[in-house]
Write a protein that binds this DNA or RNA. Sequence first.
DNA 1: CAAGCTGAAAGTGTCGACAATCGACGCCCA
DNA 2: TGGGCGTCGATTGTCGACACTTTCAGCTTG
Lengths: 237, 237
Amino acid sequence: MRAMSPPVGLPVLAESDLVRQVARRLTDAIVQGRLPPGAKVAEAAVARELGISRAPVREAARLLESQGLLRASPRRGFFVRELSAQEVDELYALRLCVERHAAVEAARRLTPAVREALRRQLDLMRDLARRDDPAAIVEADYQFHRLICEAAGNARMLRLFDGLASELRIVIGLIGRLYDDPQEIARTHEPVLAAIEAGHPERIVAHVDHHLGVARREVGRLVQSLTPTARQTRETP
Amino acid sequence: MRAMSPPVGLPVLAESDLVRQVARRLTDAIVQGRLPPGAKVAEAAVARELGISRAPVREAARLLESQGLLRASPRRGFFVRELSAQEVDELYALRLCVERHAAVEAARRLTPAVREALRRQLDLMRDLARRDDPAAIVEADYQFHRLICEAAGNARMLRLFDGLASELRIVIGLIGRLYDDPQEIARTHEPVLAAIEAGHPERIVAHVDHHLGVARREVGRLVQSLTPTARQTRETP
DNA sequence: CAAGCTGAAAGTGTCGACAATCGACGCCCA
DNA sequence: TGGGCGTCGATTGTCGACACTTTCAGCTTG
């Protein structure tokens, strides 16, 4: 009988939600590149490895499928999604739509706390660039953009951004280093933040367009080079 | 080496994917308003009604959850998502981002076939408005916007639009008639199509903004009136 | 008479099992 | 020798079962 004792601290022991945990682990494995595009995600193997049954694994896989991280092939199982150069380009087009609006909106309701957070994030990126830690830089880059989306005050938009970012990470996780010059990442973010602080919508849009345009071309080029003519693993669409 | 016999017709027999079918039925029930916001979706009941086991129902429910149609409450089950006025507003803000870009892009690559399809859709809406069939008008309205997104040539964007539209239909299905004057719907679409045909980006954005702005305010007002102070069914977040 | 407690019923979270299907290996035959 | 075909193992799709939790109606109690 759960008396639900006084609302003291709550260690919150692992709640029974196995599905979330499995989804999380699979997501991590994908964005970290441990599960490369095209890799098969066998239910039984995952279940064995985690010491659980197949049911939660299947449900988690469905979740990731509708998030675009996995692809379900009936009677054949789940595979890590393979992104063509065109699909990557489409994702960047969507990011552009979203982040333009987010940046303008973030500027409109900019608070000192948010401005400070953005500046700190930019400092962090500069610092990481000096130390040349590619994985951490990608993460910090993502966080900077996420902060802007968060500051726009639209929860649904933030969820969308997270989804788009996850999908892009399928390929970004593969690319060792995004830019030849790590320092350049921080530099290309500076005008975006400056424009947001200045609060001129046209300039914000222009700088977001330019920044994402650079990333779009850069990633597009790298993805193109990753897929010379065809991939290694083939299956029917 | 697959000789892949001569490319004769393609019967494409129906796949046995129960999960998709269940997801489809639940989606239909929700957007048609047969499952109102806050309604409980009991796995066992659905499984019994469809004559199948609970496993496919659970997986379908997960799918709809990540699409925003259902909300999962651990140990309590799935419920049809309830949208606050603010959430509806956020969805419209996202639609604005997406459809602005889609309309401009659709204009850039407008083909005679697409132009013809858009005109026919507009005619259909005018026709339905004269007959005063609210449900059909909402459907035709949705199709018009979808055609524009499709014409933009970005598959990922189309998927996003479908998702946003589904979520909005949770509430739109509740509202008997969206506009006092049905004829007005067709009229507010005309300048959008005209701007796309003319191909001036600024005018396209302006008209899309105006059209969606009207819908946003209208739906927002109706949603507000649907939720006077609190809802009937309450549960912990 | 209202509020809290108690027990049972219903429902969820997870598991193991079974049939159907897919892919691959090896065999047979031209 | 090379290609088509049957068989076998492995995996998926689905099911029924069980333990635990939540819910609710009825009873007890202040």
